[in-house]
């Protein structure tokens, strides 16, 4: 799905520039793919990327906002927010810690993926979950999907911060 990496673009650009100047494209591509990296810079990038991923997880879209990817930040925030709102409105099951079986623990992990929105969903669902109807069952899926989508977005922000994706 995410195939537009910065490395690929850099390699393509280098090859195009090299062919325009009659330089061996393979050599230029090799140079583009192996930039000289300072160890301190790499560690700083890693630390920054992890911090961005964690902030993106806690507040959906904030990781992308820190990277000035405004469109993605707004989309992630609204998508996760709508899914949580719909899931809570449909009285989906919001799993609590200390589940009895593996499914409950997995559901809790997925729900927790929404970060701070988990607590918003908990405050919205004042009358509790009702999975005796199809609405509640769909709501459970909406809440879990919101969490998984937010984790995917946080991972994307992490990769973008490490200059692997754009």
């Amino acid at each position: 799905m995410f195939d537009d990496t910065i490395e690929n673009k850099a390699a393509n650009d280098a090859a195009a520039a090299a062919s325009a100047e009659n330089i061996d494209p393979a050599a230029s591509v090799h140079e583009a793919q192996a930039p000289e990296e300072h160890p301190i810079h790499t560690t700083a990038y890693d630390f920054r990327a992890i911090a961005i991923a964690i902030t993106g997880w806690i507040l959906p879209g904030f990781g992308h906002a820190l990277l000035r990817m405004w469109g993605r930040a707004v989309t992630v925030f609204l998508a996760v927010g709508f899914l949580v709102y719909l899931g809570a409105g449909m009285r989906g099951n919001l799993f609590a810690p200390g589940g009895e079986d593996a499914f409950a623990r997995l559901g809790y992990a997925a729900d927790l993926g929404t970060g701070s929105f988990y607590f918003i969903a908990r405050s919205l669902e004042t009358s509790g979950a009702d999975v005796s109807h199809a609405d509640g069952d769909y709501g459970t899926r909406f809440l879990a999907t919101a969490g998984v989508l937010n984790l995917l977005a946080a991972l994307h922000a992490y990769e973008a911060a490490r200059r692997r994706k754009a």
């Binding site: 799905m1 998508a79 977005a153 994307h156």
Partner: peptide, 10 residues
Amino acid sequence: IISLAFGTLG
């Protein structure tokens, strides 16, 4: 919702 998120992220 998911399609819009996929399109924007991908």
